[in-house]
Amino acid sequence: MSISGIPAIMSSLSVQETQQPKGIDPPSLKQLESQTHVGRSRLSRRMAVYKHKVITKDGWLGDYDYTWLCTPSLPFRRKSKNRVPPFYSLDADIPLLPAIVFGLQHALAMLAGLITPPIIFASALNLDSATSSYLISASLIGCGYYLGTGLISVVGTSFATLSTATAIFDAMYKDGTCASTVAADGTTIRNACPDAYGKVLGTSLICSFLEMFMAFVPPRVLKRLFPPLVTGTVVLMIGASLIGSSGIPNWGGGSNDCYSAPSGIFALCPTTTAPRPLLWGSPEFIGLGFLSFASILLTEMFGSPFLKNASIIVGLAVGCIVSGAAGYIDGSSIASAPPITFLW
């Protein structure tokens, strides 16, 4: 063997070592039906498949790499180069335990995005706890699963409306559409204004016809009208607006009048009726917010693949646990809430 051929051999070996194998699609449900009980009817074959999934170890566990799913990414841990999770195609038959885990992971990942907009709306309009709970329940109920793309999709509440709706609420309070009360010291306190939220919903309903019309526009035309530079800038500005109007104020204790005009019931944050009310920007509030933020960062950096997709919920859970232990959470509203909420 010539010396000139050695670099090529070493190069091929390095490629083989670093290249990870691709996942193999498991057999689909249709294939399992065709392979089991060929002489039976379609219903009998399907029932046999369901029985196999429920009462057998293979139906519950399959060959999924649970170690990869639950192992944290620690900096001192030696990583496996060739470990990749199984890939499940569109019609693949997923074992029951991974299906339950993936469903829980998906629910946890989407939960924060579904409940945050109604919480911000309720805070901006000074709505009571019962109405706030109703908005959150309506958001969770309305964000159902829709089929049509070949995948299970969740239609959730949008953050894009928050900055616009907040500006509309400010204008309604300024022109008197929503009532305000002037305290003895001259500060203005916003009263609850649920009608403002209803007007925003009505406006959104009318504007939705424009989106329905745009659904028939060819994608190439939409890309010319809304290139990535435009859409990316809009999303960036929405996020920056939310940080200034809601993120930082809530980190300090609340975005209601305890932040802008502290007086009366809003002399302390979140209100004087809270279990442990404090001034806006108190170190306790800053510390709790930093704890949740640090928990999210640590989960994204060192968490397992399962926890990384639910890092927001992990941060909220850590903050709630510490807040509850320190006496900042009042569970009376949860205890008095109805077990089931109907939109009507």
Rank of each mutant, 00 (worst) to 15 (best):
L140D: 04
P21F: 02
T131N: 07
G324R: 02
L298E: 01
S11C: 11
P21Y: 00
D330Y: 02
T177H: 05
E17Q: 11
M10A: 13
S295I: 02
V314L: 04
A274W: 03
N250Y: 05
D257K: 00
K174T: 09
L288N: 03
G198N: 11
Q19I: 13
P194G: 00
K53A: 15
G327Q: 06
Y88F: 11
I340V: 13
C320A: 15
V54G: 05
T56P: 00
T71C: 05
R77Q: 14
L135A: 03
S292C: 12
R42W: 13
G156E: 07
C178Q: 00
A261H: 12
V221I: 13
S14C: 14
F169P: 03
M47Q: 09
S123M: 02
T18M: 14
I248G: 04
V101E: 00
T187G: 06
T36C: 09
A337T: 01
D185A: 05
V230L: 15
T36Q: 10
K57C: 13
S333T: 12
P95L: 02
N309P: 01
Y88P: 04
V155F: 13
I120A: 06
I119W: 07
A130F: 08
S323W: 06
K22H: 09
F169N: 02
S336K: 08
F290V: 09
S241Q: 04
P95V: 00
I340Y: 07
S44G: 09
A165M: 12
Y66S: 01
F306Y: 08
A317V: 11
Y197T: 03
C70A: 14
A215H: 14
A48T: 08
P249E: 01
L61K: 07
N256T: 09
I152T: 12
K223R: 13
P98I: 03
Y50V: 12
T272E: 11
A165R: 06
T181R: 07
P270Q: 01
S123T: 10
T203H: 12
L225E: 05
I334C: 09
V15C: 11
G264P: 03
E300H: 10
M237R: 04
T157I: 06
Y197L: 15
S263H: 06
R40F: 10
K79M: 12
I141L: 07
K223Y: 07
L297G: 06
V38L: 11
R220F: 15
S158R: 02
Y146R: 09
S11K: 11
R224M: 13
P270R: 05
D185F: 04
L316V: 13
L108A: 08
T18A: 14
S41H: 03
I168W: 13
T181L: 07
L97W: 00
M301N: 06
G287D: 10
I55G: 04
T233M: 14
T177L: 04
A99D: 07
F226L: 10
A122V: 02
P26G: 00
L96C: 04
A124K: 10
I296C: 06
A165W: 14
R78P: 02
A165H: 09
